[in-house]
Computed example of a mutant assay.
Amino acid sequence: MDTDMHYRLLGPVEAWREGRRLALGGPKPRALLAALLLEPGRVVSADALIDAIWGDNPPDTARSLIQSYVSALRRALSADVIETQPPGYLIHADAEVVDRATFERLTA
């Protein structure tokens, strides 16, 4: 895992590496990244990702769009950060690289 990577969920969803913000694409890939970062190290099902991104009105192409977003995020972040694991995906990110976890730890 890339220890120079940092994720921001509080405010706009962002990923930073070595002090530089990475291009993640539009709101839907960012929503997918946020959904994965809320469950680091755990598989988030494709159905849960579809619900997180589109709610009750997903397009017929939602599953293929999820695959496209994951592919784009892998290019932006690193190929090994997001792992395909049935029935969905998981992100490899330690708590200390996600601002939400740091916030929760400091406020506890």
Rank of each mutant, 00 (worst) to 15 (best):
A34E: 13
N57D: 15
V97D: 15
A76T: 03
Q85F: 09
R75W: 04
M1Q: 08
V70S: 01
R21H: 00
L77F: 15
P86D: 15
D47P: 00
P27L: 14
A108R: 14
G19K: 06
G25D: 04
I53M: 15
E96R: 09
S68N: 04
D94H: 08
E39K: 05
A93R: 06
G41L: 08
A95V: 00
D47Q: 07
R8T: 11
E39L: 01
A46M: 05
P59I: 01
G11F: 12
D56K: 14
P59A: 00
A79I: 13
M1W: 11
L36W: 12
D2Q: 14
T102N: 08
L22R: 04
D4K: 04
I50M: 02
R30P: 02
D4P: 03
D51P: 08
R21A: 05
T3F: 06
A62P: 12
R8E: 09
W16M: 15
S78C: 11
D56R: 11
T102A: 10
A23Y: 09
D94G: 12
H92G: 03
A15D: 07
L24N: 01
A23P: 02
W16H: 15
G19Y: 05
L90A: 03
V97Q: 15
D2I: 07
D4E: 10
L10E: 15
V70D: 02
P40K: 03
A48E: 05
L65H: 12
L106H: 14
P87C: 03
I53G: 12
P12K: 12
I82M: 11
D56P: 14
L73A: 00
D51R: 15
L38H: 11
R30W: 02
L38C: 10
D99R: 04
G88D: 08
V70M: 01
G55F: 11
L37Y: 05
A52Y: 08
Y89E: 00
D94F: 00
P29H: 14
T107F: 11
D99M: 07
L24Y: 00
L37F: 04
T102C: 09
L9C: 05
E104N: 06
V97T: 15
I50S: 00
I53R: 08
L90S: 05
A48Y: 02
A35M: 12
L38M: 12
S68C: 01
G26F: 07
V81E: 08
V44K: 08
V43R: 02
D4F: 03
G26Y: 10
P86Q: 10
P12D: 12
L22S: 03
A76E: 02
V44N: 06
L65P: 06
L36G: 08
L106C: 12
T107P: 13
P86T: 11
T3E: 13
L49M: 02
P58K: 09
L73C: 03
A108N: 13
A108G: 15
L77M: 13
R42H: 14
P58H: 07
R100S: 05
G55H: 13
P87G: 08
F103M: 13
D2Y: 10
L37R: 04
D60Y: 08
T61V: 03
R8L: 08
V81K: 10
A108I: 13
G19T: 05
S78F: 07
H92F: 00
A93M: 04
D47N: 10
G25V: 01
R42K: 14
R100D: 02
L77G: 13
E39F: 01
I91Y: 04
F103H: 11
A72I: 00
S78P: 13
D51C: 10
T3H: 06
A95I: 01
R75G: 02
A48C: 01
